[in-house]
Design a binder for these strands. Structure first.
Length: 422
RNA sequence: GGAGACGUCGCAUAGUUCGGCCUAGUGCACCACCCUGCUAAGGUGGAGAGCCCGUAAGGGCUCCGAGGGUUCAAAUCCCUCCGUCUCCGCCA
């Protein structure tokens, strides 16, 4: 949720942001109006309630024989109070609905526009070249006995796979490598629930425009999370945090579930886009003024991972229209995928400023004693998808894979992954 | 899944019998000041969250797990849900 104070102080900032995102600008005016309607209703109700409270004391103190008359008199007032209270509830709901649909105002420098309007921040590493025709990740994965799509489909359907043998080990290796670095960086490891309540799902903003991406279990009224960000953000919901000793940082390890409803026909081959995968996610709760520095920090952790794994990548500043509603800025780190001849997103890191925290009611105490929302940030540190870039980048002509040095300790020192005989 | 007990302002508790004197008491911890020669004790005051009006001082409203209901009036009575505990059942 946006800061309601912004509506009163600087609605133009919100209009500018909405416009850059390609979202409704008129929503801002509706919100301003709903805010004043809400406050009018509250004033009316509170005045009535105050006189009712006062009258109640009179009734309580009155001698027995006078009570009956007084009670009769109070009934009319009670009806008025009830009506006024209903009016407040209506006005509050209206306000919440409108304000809740205004996205987080973007930060300075975030480019306007849609998916293709990103700003390139940097490109790192040589694009790998081969003196043979490179195989794609699935072909390689099958050669080395790492990926089994056919049986995935048999058991669970399209976009499901088995990671087997070295494939399973590879995923655990990447995740563990990320986890070790996260721990060294002060992140607390957290294995999170992947089924969450509706209010948590809603609070993290995933039931908005992309709600059809989310698996839902009606029998239990629970949602399967598409990222541990959901549980990580919900972890401190409704709490007042102590950030005096610095930010609270977590590394959440979980399986992620996505319906991929809007992506029919795209990336149908291999494990680039699947319904279920594993991910290690960084999540930070910081003071609002430290959010941008923390964002840079999360990005640096991601880049270190990519560099260590010997991948070529670029970093982009995602355009406003391509941001989630909670994010005020998002950097994607995209690795070069040789057989696609393009960069594909491996990680993404978002600065949600105070937007997500306000919705989940996560605050800290200022020196003045006032409580105010913290800022939250998240960023991927490792996922199953990385296997794609690793296999393709480090493949050799015979189908074997040269294991990046940094990863070897997590594979028992393995240097080369050899094809398995069929 | 069945039966039962419980959920109070950081922690611990009183209050719920029988609705109004609860503006929720007390202890501990906490903060400020005072007193005191000293690992302390004592005294005084302060101190929860949110919202509304107000430049402010200040005033008002809401919150006793959550949400409804009954009532002039609900921590207290009723219903639903959530959570914790105990016993039974079931169990990849």
């Amino acid at each position: 949720m946006i800061d309601p104070q912004l509506l009163r102080d600087n609605p133009d900032a919100l209009r500018t942001s909405q416009s850059a995102r390609g979202d409704s600008v008129g929503l801002v005016d509706e919100a301003v109006e709903a805010d004043s309607a809400r406050r009018t209703a509250i004033n009316a109700f509170e005045a009535l309630r105050a006189s009712q409270n006062l009258f109640g004391k009179t009734v309580a103190a009155a001698p027995k024989d006078e009570k009956k008359a007084l009670v009769a008199q109070a009934q009319g007032l009670a009806a008025e109070v009830k009506a006024a209270q209903a009016a407040v509830a209506l006005a509050e709901a209206q306000f919440a609905r409108i304000v809740g649909s205004i996205a987080n105002p973007i930060l300075d420098g975030v480019p306007s526009g849609g998916e293709d309007d990103f700003v390139l921040i940097k490109t790192v590493g040589e694009i790998p070249s081969f003196d043979f025709t490179p195989r794609d990740h699935l072909e390689l994965g099958e050669l080395i006995g790492a990926i089994d799509m056919g049986r995935g489909a048999k058991v669970s359907g399209t976009r499901f796979s088995f990671l087997r043998g070295i494939g399973a080990r590879l995923e655990l290796a990447i995740m563990n490598m990320g986890l070790d670095r996260a721990i060294a960086g002060g992140f607390i490891p957290l294995i999170t629930p992947t089924l969450v309540r509706p209010e948590i799902m809603r609070g993290t903003g995933f039931l908005g425009e992309h709600s059809d991406e989310v698996y839902y279990l009606p029998a239990d009224d629970l949602y399967l999370t598409g990222t541990s960000e959901v549980a990580l953000a919900g972890y401190h919901a409704d709490e007042i945090l102590d950030l005096a000793d610095g930010p609270l940082r977590y590394a959440g390890w979980s399986t992620c579930y996505r319906r991929e409803a809007g992506s029919g026909g795209r990336d149908t081959r291999g494990i680039i886009r699947v319904h279920q995968f594993n991910k290690l996610e960084m999540f930070s709760y910081v003071l609002p003024e430290d959010a941008e520095a923390e964002h840079a920090r999360l990005l640096s952790f991601q880049e270190d991972m990519l560099v260590s794994l010997g991948l070529s990548y670029r970093v982009i500043d995602t355009a406003a229209g391509d941001l989630g509603s909670s994010a005020a800025r998002k950097y994607d780190v995209e690795a070069w995928v040789p057989t696609q001849g393009t960069y594909r997103e491996l990680t993404s890191t978002s600065n949600c400023t105070t937007y997500q925290a306000r919705r989940l009611d996560i605050r800290y105490r200022q020196e003045s004693g006032r409580t105010t929302p913290v800022a939250t940030l998240n960023g991927t540190l490792a996922t199953t998808r990385w296997i794609v870039a690793i296999l393709e980048t480090h493949q050799r002509e015979d189908g074997s894979i040269l294991v990046p040095e940094a990863l070897r300790p997590y594979l028992g020192g393995l240097e080369i992954i050899e094809p398995v005989s069929a």
